[in-house]
Amino acid sequence: MAEEPDGARRDEGELALAWDALVATARRTVTDGLVVGTSGNVSVRVGDTVLVTPSGVPYDELTPDDLVAVGLDGERRAGTLKPTSELPMHLAVYRATPARAVVHTHAVHATAVSTLVPELPLIHYMAAALGGPVRVAPYATYGTERLAGNVLGALEGRTGCLLQNHGTLTYGDSLAAAYDRTAQLEWLCRVWLTASSHPRLAPALLTRDQVREVEEKLRGYGQRG
């Protein structure tokens, strides 16, 4: 029996590690209350292969053998489970942006905000972490190319958006970055809803120039050599 080439083994090992990280991130969305049951989905890009959570499988039941992989064209490359119904949306983001990971949730506060405004008001400077004012993608049936197109429009110049009467989508250069943006977006929505609930007072909002100033500061944020 011929031995498997070293390159193939390395590729399989890389996909296995990426799958483990994807499953851990998906489980975190449940633990942190960003999704209920099997709602929401997570994906990560490895080269020109996209790993994605399967449709209708609880995240705590996923194993290494459940890996689901497709190409950027949606053709299956590995696994037997059916990919998430939101695959068109994930693939559209990968084809149009530098995303290496995508997180989609049905977070409560973000979903509520998506039903109220066309754009999340600038309630806090951390909107800068998402590229500026967060837009709401117009409603379309889940899993459709129309929804994918609406999301791309809302993402222009941004790394996250709300989906009207649906939820959130964020992307990043890693699963950790995409997840952090999801958590920040849900927090921003919660802050705005809380401030807006006062019966007599309206929340003070930031200007776009103030948020742009923070965007510049964030480029140098953190521990850098």
Rank of each mutant, 00 (worst) to 15 (best):
L91D: 01
G79R: 08
G7K: 02
D11Q: 13
L87C: 04
E156F: 03
R9A: 15
V68H: 12
R212V: 11
M126G: 10
G74H: 05
G131T: 14
Y139D: 09
A177K: 15
T141P: 01
G149P: 01
A127E: 07
L218M: 15
A140N: 03
V35I: 15
P98K: 02
A101I: 09
A101S: 15
S39N: 13
D20P: 00
G225A: 07
P203M: 14
Y125K: 06
D65W: 08
R9C: 06
V93K: 07
L152S: 00
A112M: 08
G220W: 05
T31D: 07
G33A: 13
P133C: 05
G40P: 08
T25C: 15
R208T: 15
G40A: 14
T105N: 04
T105Y: 03
D6W: 06
V36Y: 11
V36K: 15
E3R: 15
P199S: 10
T97D: 01
V68D: 04
G40T: 02
H104P: 05
G167R: 11
G132R: 07
V113I: 13
E86H: 03
G225M: 02
Y139H: 13
G153C: 01
D73C: 07
A195D: 09
L205F: 11
G149V: 10
Y171C: 11
L218G: 12
H109P: 08
L67T: 05
L206K: 06
L116Q: 12
R212G: 12
H166I: 07
P88V: 00
Y221M: 11
G40L: 11
G13F: 04
N41T: 04
T80N: 14
D65Q: 07
Y125P: 09
G132S: 02
P5S: 09
A148E: 04
V151Q: 01
A128M: 12
T159D: 02
G220I: 00
T25G: 05
H106K: 04
A112P: 06
E145F: 09
V151N: 06
T53Y: 00
T170G: 02
G143N: 05
R135C: 09
A129F: 05
N41G: 13
T159A: 07
G71W: 02
G222P: 03
A195T: 07
G56W: 05
V70N: 08
L122S: 04
W19E: 03
G56T: 07
G222I: 04
A178F: 11
D32N: 12
G132I: 11
L169W: 07
A202H: 14
V103S: 02
V211Y: 02
L72W: 10
G157A: 01
R28W: 14
Y171R: 12
H166K: 06
V117Q: 05
L152E: 01
A112V: 12
A99H: 14
W192M: 10
P54L: 00
V46G: 00
V136T: 14
R95K: 12
E75A: 15
R45Y: 09
V35H: 12
T111R: 08
G153E: 14
A16N: 00
W192R: 08
A127L: 05
V35P: 00
A16H: 02
D60M: 10
V70E: 02
N150I: 02
E12M: 03
H198D: 12
G13L: 01
A107G: 09
P203K: 14
